[in-house]
Amino acid sequence: MSSGPTVLPGPSGRCWSGSTTAGRSRWRTTPVQTVMEILHRKEWLARAKSGRAFNYRATKSREEYGASLIDQVWATGADRTATLVRLFDELEPGERAELRAALAERAGGERA
């Protein structure tokens, strides 16, 4: 067996860091706990006490996180239209069709 570090998903989505020695796991949760605490302080993770441990969950969906990155770009004064056109140009044809349909639905059935 490998004696290097491993990161495994634990119960309730928690991750545990450990190393294996002679087939036995020796868990070292401190590095993971430190990262989770930092992400919690930055409000990227929410946590709830579960016995002696915490269960963590993301505070934003991937879509919300992606949109917040675009907001950060626009906060720098970037041209919104040029940015959107560039993103649109990089979409696959099927993704473009999905975006057009979503925009049309949002506009109340009007062509976007």
Score class of each variant (00 low, 15 high):
A82M: 10
A22Q: 12
D89K: 15
V7I: 14
P9L: 04
A48H: 08
F88W: 14
L91W: 10
G23P: 11
G51C: 05
K49E: 02
L8E: 10
R28L: 09
D89F: 12
G51L: 01
G18N: 03
G10H: 13
E90C: 11
R111P: 02
W74M: 14
P9H: 01
T59C: 09
K60P: 00
A75S: 05
S50N: 14
A107H: 03
L87K: 03
T83A: 14
R106S: 08
A75E: 10
A107E: 12
L8S: 10
L69A: 08
E64Y: 08
R24N: 07
T81L: 14
V32S: 05
A101G: 04
R57M: 05
G77F: 08
K60E: 01
F88S: 15
K49W: 11
I38Q: 01
L69S: 11
G66T: 06
E92F: 14
A22T: 15
F54V: 01
G94V: 07
R57D: 09
A58I: 04
R106L: 10
G18T: 06
W74I: 10
F88R: 14
T21L: 02
A58Y: 07
T30W: 09
H40D: 02
S2T: 11
T81G: 04
V73D: 12
Y56Q: 00
R62G: 12
E37A: 01
A104H: 08
S50C: 12
R28P: 03
M36S: 06
A75Q: 02
P93D: 08
K42E: 00
G10M: 11
T81A: 06
Q33L: 10
S50R: 13
A53K: 12
L99W: 02
E63V: 08
S17D: 07
Q72A: 14
W74T: 12
A46Y: 02
L103R: 15
R86L: 13
Q33W: 03
K42I: 00
T83E: 13
L69R: 09
W44K: 00
L84I: 10
